[in-house]
């Protein structure tokens, strides 16, 4: 049961098409797991439809012969068949995340960042960074700075901080005001997609790695 959802603001920006690629990836992956936000997104797309309806402008007309030109192109383009319905995929990673990773969990090329925590940076535009995070059960998310907006989507296991618990499909939206120390629950190792729009540096690269990550 997903209890932490996307904000209206993020859904509107995703619908409008104005988010950095890494954020688009997190929004789309959450929606793949969450029909509530899929329906909310569709309602924001309906706003886009209303904007299209009223976009007409006397000063912007089609060229003469636009319809004939379009019909001529249609004759040379084969129609697209209706796609067959797809079953829910069996893996842990839904689309579009699976395509960015190049498969399911076993396709991720992890790098240690200390304390048993691993990460893998995903290929996106430089406007924001997307990374997979692997946090062993019971361990803390490595201490890192929050400069801009950070979104963390849980794909396996769960983590909790002082405010709430986040399980599969839940997304935490954190800005610089939030000071938190997420800790993976005991039991299953926690795997997340984390995206940030500001550079993020793990202090765990320092030799003080054996220190607890708590920074109170």
């Amino acid at each position: 049961m997903i209890t932490h959802h996307l904000s209206d603001k993020l859904l509107m920006a995703y619908s409008a098409g104005s988010l950095p690629e890494a954020f688009n990836l997190a929004v789309a992956t959450h929606i793949a797991l969450c029909d509530e936000c899929r329906a909310r997104l569709a309602s924001f797309d309906a706003i886009g439809g209303a904007m299209l309806e009223q976009a007409q402008d006397e000063g912007i007309a089609l060229e003469q012969g636009a319809l004939a030109a379009t019909l001529a192109r249609i004759k040379t383009t084969p129609p697209v068949a209706k796609p067959s319905p797809r079953r829910v995929p069996q893996g842990v990673l839904p689309e579009p995340l699976a395509s960015y990773v190049g498969g399911d969990l076993d396709a991720i090329r992890w790098r240690n960042v200390g304390g048993g925590v691993r990460q893998a940076i995903l290929p996106t535009s430089k406007a924001a960074t997307a990374r997979m995070l692997y946090i062993p059960a019971g361990k803390a998310v490595p201490d890192h700075g929050h400069n801009g907006l950070e979104m963390t989507l849980v794909l396996q296991g769960a983590f909790a901080d002082a405010t709430a618990r986040f399980g599969r499909g839940d997304i935490e939206i954190a800005d610089e005001d939030l000071d938190h120390q997420p800790i993976a629950e005991p039991g299953e190792d926690c795997i997340c997609l984390a995206v940030t729009d500001a550079p993020l540096k793990f202090r765990a690269f320092l030799p003080r790695i054996a220190q607890p990550f708590l920074r109170i």
């Binding site: 690629e21 992956t29 793949a32 995929p89 395509s99 535009s125």
Partner: peptide
Amino acid sequence: RRDRRPEPEELFWGP
């Protein structure tokens, strides 16, 4: 040439 916008897998009605 804006940022790519990946989409969630679409759901289609069966035949």
